[in-house]
């Protein structure tokens, strides 16, 4: 019988959302449209329309040594062209943001190729070749893994994950990179490191509280689904905790 990955334990909606995001055969729902130019503006690594700067000559022009691994592992488009390595970083509010730092890394490792994620408590950075990054960032912004109010694209000064939301429902941002307009649409007025943009970039309307609760990937006993409501998840966590604690004493499962 062929191996079928489980992705994660749990019977709650949070557990199911986590599995959906990780499972590459699950098609993430597209909720908003951003253009390629919008993504380039928010990332701020190069001017829109400019050619991709390169870090080395294209692989086709290089004399590569004979190596069976190179035949097995095909390079991504960015690697083929010799693009620079650039990054996108997301800060996710613990108030039911649709994705969370660890979850992002798991999901991206299953879905994307040639990436180098860095996971922290309140933010997650992913590095890869610039050409690939534009595609990955676009997918992360357009789909159900993003919410304009509770997720921020922040390269620096990222504080906000663990803070209460503002009155208008936006996650705190010391640099106020995105602003909720009177028409209810969130617009990025600065790029991810805080440099003002020539034009505002629309990322759509914030999702409502009900949608966020149904699509969240974080357990939260006050505003979302509590971990104690998912006994299967608790059993899994306790098993991992027990085995980790006993590790070094030759643990044997009974």
């Amino acid at each position: 019988m062929a191996y079928k990955p489980q992705y994660g334990p749990g019977t709650s909606i949070v557990a199911q959302n986590r599995r959906n995001q990780m499972n590459p055969s699950y098609k993430l729902k597209k909720l908003r449209d951003v253009t390629d130019e919008d993504v380039v503006l928010i990332l701020g690594h190069r001017a829109p329309g400019a050619a991709y700067p390169s870090a080395h000559p294209p692989l086709a022009e290089q004399q590569e040594p004979a190596d069976p691994m190179r035949k097995l592992v095909k390079p991504t488009e960015g690697a083929k062209a010799g693009d620079r390595v650039r990054y996108v970083q997301f800060a996710d509010s613990m108030f039911n943001a649709p994705s969370q730092p660890y979850q992002r890394t798991y999901a991206e490792m299953y879905r994307f190729r040639a990436i180098d994620p860095g996971t922290l408590s309140g933010r997650q950075i992913v590095e890869c070749r610039e050409r690939d990054l534009d595609q990955y960032a676009k997918l992360l912004i357009e789909t159900e893994m993003f919410d304009p109010a509770t997720i921020g694209i922040r390269g620096a000064t990222v504080h906000g994950h663990s803070l209460r939301l503002a009155e208008d429902g936006m996650m705190f941002d010391a640099l106020q990179r995105c602003v909720l307009g009177e028409d209810g649409i969130v617009r990025y007025v600065k790029d991810q490191v805080g440099v003002p943009l020539d034009r505002a970039v629309e990322v759509g309307k914030p999702m409502d509280a009900k949608w966020l609760k149904e699509h969240s990937t974080i357990f939260h006993s006050l505003v979302g689904t509590a971990l104690r409501e998912d006994p299967e998840y608790i059993e899994y966590l306790q098993r991992i905790h027990t085995l980790r604690t006993k590790y070094g004493f030759m643990p044997k499962e009974e």
Binding site: T157, G160, A174, V195
Partner: peptide
Amino acid sequence: GPGLPAIVPYGPARGQANPNTN
């Protein structure tokens, strides 16, 4: 409460003005 710096404190934009409606 969390601070609202007048200038960008970290990163490549450090030192630039930080307009903030709050």
